[in-house]
Amino acid sequence: MNPAIVLRCAGHPVAHYLTRPDLAADHAPRPYLHPVTTLAGVPVTEVLPVDHPHHLGAGVAVADVAGHNFWGGRTFVRGRGPTVLANHGVQRHDGFALRDPDRLVEQLSWTAADRVLLREHRTMAVVPLTGTAWALDLTFALTNVSGAGLSVGSPATNGRPGAAYGGFFWRAPREAAAPAVFGADADGEEQVHGSVSDWVALAGEGWTLVFAGATEETRRDPWFVRAAEYPGVGSSLAHDRRLPVEAGGTAVRRVVTVVADGRLDRAEAASLVRKAVGTTVRETVRTPVRKAVAG
């Protein structure tokens, strides 16, 4: 396992990124962010929890890419339910095109059964917002290099209603009480889960996470939300139908996450989302392209 890369906000360490974690095959090994903290140092991610040992902080995970599991754990099979299969893939870190204290541009290969199915271009940027909040801007672009058309699915598209997880995913820490859940125009896990909303929020003990789709395509993806069973939020690349990616085609998504100290209300969350998305757009435009470096 390589040492974690530390991302900083105005000089303060706020996230650690592991590019080559030492994980068993059934965890679908992949890079992930953990720990991620608020500016006051409150942890807001969790890895390898007892309830779902394949949850790995914050990152990108997909349960079904052409039948291969890049999420970890059991695979939901129509007519059989959750099934242990030897179908796990690996997201291999190939290197960095940019490695700054507050920004990473990474190249990855999604490999399964000794074949590279997807090449990924991933960008992560840390942006200061206020004295008590910062934002993580994460974009991933998945290009089909398999030589044939493939599609992305989820347990929901394979027959398990309400389980359309796959894409960006953030596992928050379990606490004595479930976090509060709210969106731009809804309250509670039942109302927010599966909704198409500009943003959704989890608020725990001394922290709030606000997740926002930052492109039109990303905003069309419904949100996957859990609070009572475990705390986690993700996007749904394949909510009610599989997402096709033609040979040579690319699927791109961008999620901006506000990480704040304290419990935000709806107005405060909306204000920080507006600031975060606007700021990260300008930062992306200004950032120069740099040559690749080993990572």
Rank of each mutant, 00 (worst) to 15 (best):
S236N: 12
G249K: 02
V277A: 09
A238N: 08
V65Q: 01
G167I: 05
Y32A: 09
K291H: 13
H121E: 10
A58L: 14
G73I: 07
L264W: 02
T83H: 09
A276V: 13
S109K: 03
A156D: 07
A24I: 05
V225F: 10
A201T: 06
A125T: 15
A276F: 13
T157V: 15
A180N: 00
V152Y: 01
G167M: 04
E205M: 05
I5A: 05
W71L: 09
R119Q: 15
E205R: 15
N87I: 00
A156N: 12
L18D: 03
P161N: 03
A135K: 11
G188D: 07
R103A: 11
E217D: 15
V200G: 07
L118G: 08
A184D: 14
A292K: 11
A270T: 06
A292L: 09
N87M: 01
E216N: 05
R226M: 14
H93D: 01
P35Y: 04
V181T: 03
V6D: 03
V285Y: 05
L117P: 04
L138M: 15
T280Y: 02
R20F: 05
V258P: 02
S154K: 00
F168P: 03
S236I: 00
L56I: 04
T257R: 02
F76S: 01
G213T: 05
V259W: 04
V192F: 07
M124E: 06
A112M: 07
R115I: 06
F70L: 05
V277Y: 03
P155T: 09
R115E: 14
V6G: 06
L129F: 13
S109F: 01
